[in-house]
C-alpha cells in the first residue's frame, strides 16, 4: 500500500501483566472498508480507541492521515480529530440533547457555522442515515437501539470526515436493520469517499461491505486480506470462525 491513511507500527498494549497487543502492525488504505475481527478480548475495541487517541498504548507508532496521533501538540491533534468521526457501540448519544442537537454538536464545537445552516446540514445528515423526520427532535431515550445507532452514525459523519471508525455497528440490530446499516455504510463510502475502520463480529457485514478484513489473534494482526484469502489460512480460530455453521451460512453454503 503506497499511501495508507492509517498506519500502525509496533503497537504494544498492556493492562498490568495482561498483554493485549505486541508488535502489532496495520495499514488501512484510502477509501477502503476494513473490517477488524478477532475473538473476545483480543483488543479490537482497544485498538480502535488507541487509533483515535482515547487510549494510550504502551509502545508503538500510530499515524493517521500522515500525522502522528501520539506525541503531538493539542492544537494539531484537534485539527486531526476533526478529520475523523467515531461511532461507539451503543451510539453513545448525549442523553440531554435531541437527535438533531447530537448531530449538530460536532459542528457547533468545531466549526463556526450560522445557526440555520447548521440546522439544515444536521437535518440532511439525519435523513441520510435513514431516520424519519419525526425522530429529529426526540431525545435518544425515545429511540430504539437501531435508530440510536443510526443517529450515532449521523453524528460520526456530521463533519464529512475522511475516516469513520465504527465499533460493532450492527451488534444488537435485527437482520433488516443490520443489512440496512451495511448498505448505508457502503453508500456513504461511495458518496463521501470515506475510509471506514469497522470492528465487527457480524459475518454478514464482513461479506457484504468489507473490502479487506484484518484478523486480530495472538496479540497481533495475524493476517489481512479478503475473506476468500483468509479462508485458505490454516489457523484454528479463523477456521472455526469462518468455517463454522454461521460462517458458512453467511456465505450461502449449507
Amino acid at each position: 500500500m503506497d499511501d495508507p491513511v492509517i498506519r500502525v507500527r509496533g503497537l504494544a498494549t498492556r493492562f498490568g501483566d495482561h498483554v493485549v497487543h505486541e508488535g502489532l502492525d496495520l495499514d488501512v488504505g484510502r477509501g477502503e472498508i476494513l473490517g477488524v475481527i478477532g475473538g473476545s478480548g483480543t483488543g479490537k475495541s482497544v485498538l480502535l480507541r488507541q487509533i483515535v487517541g482515547l487510549l494510550e498504548p504502551a509502545e508503538g507508532e500510530i499515524e493517521v492521515l500522515g500525522q502522528p496521533v501520539r506525541d503531538t501538540s493539542p492544537e494539531e491533534f484537534r485539527d486531526l480529530r476533526r478529520r475523523w468521526g467515531v461511532m461507539f457501540q451503543g451510539g453513545a448519544l448525549f442523553s440531554s440533547l435531541s437527535v438533531r442537537e447530537n448531530v449538530e454538536a460536532p459542528m457547533r464545537e468545531q466549526m463556526d457555522l450560522p445557526d440555520d445552516l447548521r440546522r439544515k446540514l444536521a437535518a440532511i445528515k439525519v435523513r441520510m442515515v435513514g431516520l424519519p423526520d419525526d425522530a429529529m427532535d426526540k431525545p435518544p431515550s425515545a429511540l430504539s437501539g437501531g435508530m440510536r445507532k443510526r443517529a450515532g452514525f449521523a453524528r460520526a459523519i456530521a463533519l464529512d470526515p475522511e475516516i469513520v471508525f465504527l465499533d460493532e455497528p450492527t451488534a444488537g440490530l435485527d437482520p433488516i436493520g443490520a443489512a440496512a446499516l451495511d448498505v448505508l455504510v457502503r453508500q456513504l463510502r461511495d458518496a463521501l469517499g470515506l475510509t471506514v475502520f469497522l470492528v465487527t463480529h457480524d459475518l454478514d457485514t464482513l461479506h457484504a461491505i468489507c473490502d479487506r478484513v484484518a484478523v486480530l489473534a495472538e496479540r497481533r494482526v495475524l493476517a489481512t486480506g479478503t475473506l476468500d484469502e483468509l479462508r485458505d489460512l490454516r489457523h484454528e480460530w479463523l477456521q472455526a470462525y469462518l468455517g463454522g455453521p454461521r460462517g458458512r451460512a453467511a456465505r450461502g453454503e449449507p
Binding site: K120, I124, R127, M128, D133, Q187, A191, L192, G193
Partner: peptide, 16 residues
Amino acid sequence: APQNDLIETVRRNLPP
C-alpha cells in the same frame, strides 16, 4: 461522477 452522486444523495435528503 462521485460529486454528482453526492449531490443527488443530498438532493434526495433535503429536509422540508
